Simulated scan of single mutants.
Amino acid sequence: MNRLSALLLVALLLLALRAPTPAQADTTAYKCVSAQGQVVYQDKPCAHGQQQQTLQLEDKEPAPPPPASATDEAAPAATVAAAPAPAPLRTPPAPMYRCINAVNKNSYISSNGDPQPYYAPLAVTGIVPTPLGHTYAPPGRGAANAATIASHYVLVQDSCQAMTPQDTCSELRDEYDANESKLSRAFKSDQPPLLQREKDLLAQLNRC
């Protein structure tokens, strides 16, 4: 047997050995060398007088992948939606105060809840319950005159109360509307302070 025939025989033998078997066990092949040096591969032991060499051929098919569990199949559909980012907290507008004038009792809006005390004529404060002529008249000199009344002052202070954020925003909107009305009628030379006030009011309204 020539070398080409031996190789063809080996190939056929390997194909035969790789045929599926029920048990899928390892297969033993035999390499037989005759006294003349001829090499034969076969699936049975060599004849008497031949050199024999056994070969173990593995004929195992790859194991099938494990069946997907119900949890694995449902995993793509059970993607948890990302929680929405919390909305940033809006900083409330700067506090404003509703104040009462200590002299004339008129109300006004201020950013200062603790105004400085000031001197006011005692005659206009309403503190003295008796007539002015009796209060300011020097003893034994008759009725009081304007100079006598004007020389009497008393230290007073306006009272203020903090406004709620809702009331503050409402007041800011009213101020913005009033400023816009003035701006629409103002000459160009009078507009810079109104434009600055508009900018300041818009900055505060952005917090409302």
Rank of each mutant, 00 (worst) to 15 (best):
A23Y: 00
A25V: 05
A25K: 10
A25C: 04
D26S: 06
T28I: 12
Y30M: 02
K31G: 08
K31E: 11
K31M: 10
K31I: 12
C32S: 03
V33Y: 01
V33K: 04
S34R: 05
S34G: 09
A35W: 02
Q36M: 07
Q36C: 06
G37H: 06
G37W: 06
V39A: 10
V39Y: 07
V40L: 12
Y41C: 01
Y41R: 00
Q42S: 07
Q42G: 05
Q42P: 00
Q42F: 02
D43H: 03
D43I: 01
K44Q: 04
P45H: 00
C46F: 07
C46P: 02
A47N: 03
A47F: 00
A47Q: 05
G49I: 08
G49F: 06
G49T: 05
Q50F: 11
Q51K: 12
Q51C: 03
Q52S: 05
Q52K: 01
Q53C: 02
Q53M: 06
T54M: 01
T54W: 00
T54V: 04
T54P: 00
L55K: 02
L55I: 10
Q56L: 13
L57V: 06
L57K: 01
L57M: 07
L57R: 03
L57D: 00
E58W: 01
E58L: 08
D59M: 08
D59A: 15
D59T: 10
D59Y: 01
K60P: 01
K60M: 04
E61A: 09
P62V: 06
P62N: 07
P62I: 03
A63K: 15
A63V: 15
A63Y: 10
P64M: 07
A68M: 15
A68Q: 14
A70F: 13
T71I: 15
T71H: 14
E73T: 12
E73S: 11
A74I: 13
A75S: 14
A75C: 08
A75G: 09
A75R: 13
A75I: 13
A75M: 14
P76V: 12
P76C: 15
A77W: 13
A78Q: 15
A78Y: 11
T79F: 10
T79W: 09
V80Q: 13
V80H: 09
V80M: 14
A82M: 13
A82N: 11
A83I: 10
A83C: 04
